[in-house]
Design a protein around this nucleic acid. Structure first.
Lengths: 232, 232
DNA sequence: TCTTTTTTTGAACACAATGTTCAGTAATGA
DNA sequence: TCATTACTGAACATTGTGTTCAAAAAAAGA
């Protein structure tokens, strides 16, 4: 059942290099790290590094890919359990803040002041691609909106990312739950005015069909379960 | 009256290096440029470059500083003329989009996909510092808000910057006026919900006193003259 | 104009980091 | 046990950085 096991040396070497990268980022920031630093810390040969990764960036990227897969699997599992009735609701943004908080060292490396912009761009593109389709769908057969859909999407993504980086850069002074709430407060009225009308819960749900990947489906819960905007 | 004139050679050398940097950014993107590229293009000696700037970043930064000064002077002039009654209203954001559009080559170098993140961070800090004081002032002696003031400020800044970069990266498909309108549509409802209440026009105006620099004063017009959110 | 001051030049240099190569060694899995 | 695969480490070519200095050129000042 399990696909062919990876050579133990490979996983060991990769793990060592990832760990080295993480501690080095904490110490001096991503930009300042040289390949030699990583080699010294991980205690592996120079040629070994280049046998695995083309450069520093690819090493960081692979850490991120790994984490993203992990998160998507978790989201899929949550979504499946929701279908069976165990969990009432999935909160994508909240889960994202929780997940980020759990792995905050890596995410700080990825998205914090100390990091390069490279992965932020990657992340940006990832979220944008995830959102643009469904949001467009949401407006199918509707009249033109006050704000172009690409801009609204771009805006939502950058709102989330800027909250995320702020949170990490300031050492997470609020809980994931509070950040999730803040995101709702900031984004919900925007969605309404950008679309030029209230968007009904049922509309989101009708789109979150069977064909979408788990994490995308989960994203809808962002809009679906409101409970935002106190004392209004 | 005029302060001592700068040596003609100095301005010439600097101009050549700036022009070289700009065309090179267009050609291959900021990151890919080496100091040698700049020297070849500008046709100046290596030691000359280092006599003027510590590195590539400092050269780009000085372009930006120059433009910022220019913009602030223009804003100050506009604000002064407003006081004399000639111009009814100053629209900071609109002026910023116009100014950016006029110098879009440089701003694209500064804020576009091709550029480094360095100046975006600088810009971010600049706008944040400009906004945080007045916004805090605005809420003096008021009860706690649904969203912490630092986050609201951070959010407004990142909204503006993300609109700006989107605009530049997509070759300015809309007019500065339209972008200004979009910014209002996206930010106005956020300000209201983040503050937990409507903020009166008079409140903004009472803060925009004599002691604030021109561009900051002008910033208030962002809130002061509404006219946003059509068909609501 | 002549003199003084300032700027530019270009080549040489030390240095730091990258990424490749390859023969030798060690660990692994079957 | 043994074929396979991965790691090693030192050497090497390459690219880019930033400094130095004496000579040449240009500008400013009188």
């Amino acid at each position: 059942m399990k696909e062919k096991r990876e050579d133990r040396r490979i996983s060991r070497t990769r793990r060592l290099m990832h760990e080295a990268l993480m501690t080095l980022i904490e110490e001096k920031g991503y930009e300042a790290i040289t390949v030699q630093d990583i080699l010294d810390r991980a205690d592996v040969g120079r040629s070994t590094f280049y046998a695995h990764y083309r450069d520093k960036d690819e090493l960081l990227l692979s850490s991120f890919e790994h984490l993203r897969t992990l998160f998507e699997q978790q989201q899929q599992a949550l979504f499946d359990s929701r279908r069976t009735g165990a969990e009432p609701e999935v909160h994508f943004i909240l889960e994202l803040f929780r997940h980020t908080g759990q792995h905050h060292k890596l995410y700080k490396a990825i998205a914090g002041k100390q990091s390069g912009e490279m992965i932020l761009k990657y992340f940006n593109r990832y979220l944008y691609t995830m959102l643009i389709g469904p949001l467009t769908e949401l407006n199918r057969n509707k009249k033109s909106m006050p704000v172009p859909i690409e801009i609204t999407t771009h805006h939502l993504v950058s709102t989330l990312l800027s909250l995320m980086t702020w949170w990490l850069d300031n050492n997470m002074p609020y809980s994931a739950e509070r950040m999730d709430e803040i995101f709702r407060i900031l984004s919900t009225p925007v969605i309404e005015t950008a679309f030029g009308r209230k968007v009904q819960k049922s509309e989101y749900e009708s789109i979150a069909g069977e064909h979408l990947p788990g994490s995308v489906k989960a994203f809808y819960s962002l809009f679906v379960d409101s409970g935002c905007c106190p004392d209004k």
